[in-house]
Simulated assay, not measured.
Amino acid sequence: MKNGARIDFRNVRKAYADTTALHDFSLSISEGEFVTILGSSGSGKSTVLNALAGFAPATSGEITIGGESVTYTPPERRNLGMVFQNYSLFPHMSVAQNIAFPLRMRGVKRSEIAAKVDRALHTVRLEKYAARMPKELSGGQQQRVAFARAIVFAPPVLLMDEPLGALDLKLREALQFEIKEIQHLLGCTVVYVTHDQREALAMSDRIVVLKDGRIEQVGTPTEMYDRPQTRFVAQFIGQTNLLKLELNEQTAYLPDVGAQWRADNKADPASARFLSIRPEKLERRQPSEQDLVIEVTVSEAVFLGDVIEYSAQHASGFSVNFREPRASHANVASRGEKIRLAFSPQDAVMVPGH
């Protein structure tokens, strides 16, 4: 079910005095899509959300929701739901009153408000908490109330600004599933802002990675992880090993590990400067003829329950990280042990150097 609205950013720019926070931002979001704007502090991700919400109107360009331009429409007329990191609940109102507030502001009939509030409470599994005050709730419960308040009037677009940032890890992970489940149920379009790449990978239909107010890459979580298009994305999304590349017509030389690799399937040699290899793609196994082999000495082994993460060093001093499922080897590699790691050329990605 899709009850969401399409969103289009066309060449949106946002400037503050002498600083440009957003440069020529263009993006289309489909009805009912869950899109995460991902970036580090100062990347421009909150600027995108504020421009869409109307809190910080665009300096130039156009934003449309459902085909209608809202570039200079006041926030209260955009009919958007919003969830913030700090909950922003009214402390003097009960849970039910907090959820009912946007309905009252929209002039919904009193006879309809109770039914809508009950439905929202049921959606977030807080039926028994309607009469409680915010101070009587846990952080996770307060965030559920904030979420219920944002969806109670069935907005076509829901904006979420780091809503799980103040919660502990276990609760964040639990709410990630709940938010996705509710979004699928409602069919609304979601624009989600976070700096947490694991959160983005877990929740998104597509991810937009920002750096210095510009889009680095747009893609599905799988595309972002398996096929990063820039050095920044390769390092920002998950962990990776970046090996310097020296290319000629026939071969790719990796000076960091003193190895050559036939580059038959290489990317544009004019732009490729690094080889990105995810830690789980480096394996202690018998290599095939096509594999590249790296000889390293184990520095550390960190037990993480289902996996063991290793740090190792090549003789050149280059650090290599690799990861193994706990059950894949009966023996855990120990500090100082010399091992050989193999990987397939198909599991490595060439990326530009910028």
Rank of each mutant, 00 (worst) to 15 (best):
N79P: 14
A100M: 02
A150P: 05
M93Q: 09
A174G: 15
M133V: 11
F84E: 05
Q143A: 02
R106G: 13
R104A: 08
L175R: 04
Q97S: 09
L167W: 10
L175K: 03
E178M: 04
R106V: 10
R77C: 13
R106W: 11
E76H: 06
L167P: 05
L89E: 00
A131Y: 11
V108Q: 01
E76S: 14
L121T: 01
L80H: 13
F153T: 07
R78V: 04
D168R: 02
H92W: 09
L159M: 06
Q141K: 11
G140V: 08
M93F: 13
V157N: 14
D161S: 07
R132S: 06
H92S: 09
L158E: 14
M133R: 12
V152M: 07
R125V: 03
K135S: 12
Q141Y: 03
V117L: 08
K135I: 09
L164M: 15
L169G: 13
E178A: 01
E127H: 09
L89C: 09
P134T: 08
K135G: 10
V83M: 05
F177C: 13
F147G: 03
I99A: 12
A96Q: 04
L171N: 00
N98K: 03
E112V: 00
H92C: 15
N98S: 13
P134A: 03
L158P: 00
E162S: 04
V157W: 14
F90R: 04
H122V: 05
L103M: 07
V157I: 08
E127K: 08
P163N: 10
V145N: 00
R77N: 15
I113N: 02
L175C: 01
V108D: 08
L137H: 02
L80S: 06
G165S: 07
V108T: 11
S88H: 10
M133W: 10
K135H: 15
A174K: 14
R149G: 04
F84H: 12
A120Q: 13
N86V: 12
L175V: 03
A120F: 04
V117I: 06
R77P: 12
T123A: 14
A148H: 12
E76I: 07
L167T: 01
V95Y: 03
R119L: 15
E136P: 05
V152N: 03
Q176W: 04
R119H: 13
L103T: 03
R132Q: 06
I113S: 00
N98V: 12
L175P: 00
K116H: 09
F147L: 10
Y87V: 10
Q142W: 11
Y129M: 14
E162I: 01
D161H: 11
F177Q: 14
E162P: 08
Y87C: 08
R77H: 14
V95D: 09
L171Q: 09
L164S: 07
E162D: 07
L103C: 01
V124L: 14
G165F: 02
S111V: 07
F147V: 02
R119C: 09
E173I: 11
L171M: 08
K135Y: 12
V83I: 11
V157P: 02
V117W: 08
V117T: 02
F84G: 10
E76N: 15
A120K: 12
F90N: 01
L158Q: 05
V124I: 15
P163F: 04
A114N: 15
A96T: 09
G139R: 08
R125P: 03
L164Y: 02
S88R: 15
S94Y: 06
E76K: 06
Y129N: 14
V145Y: 00
E162K: 07
S111E: 10
T123M: 11
Q85S: 15
A174D: 15
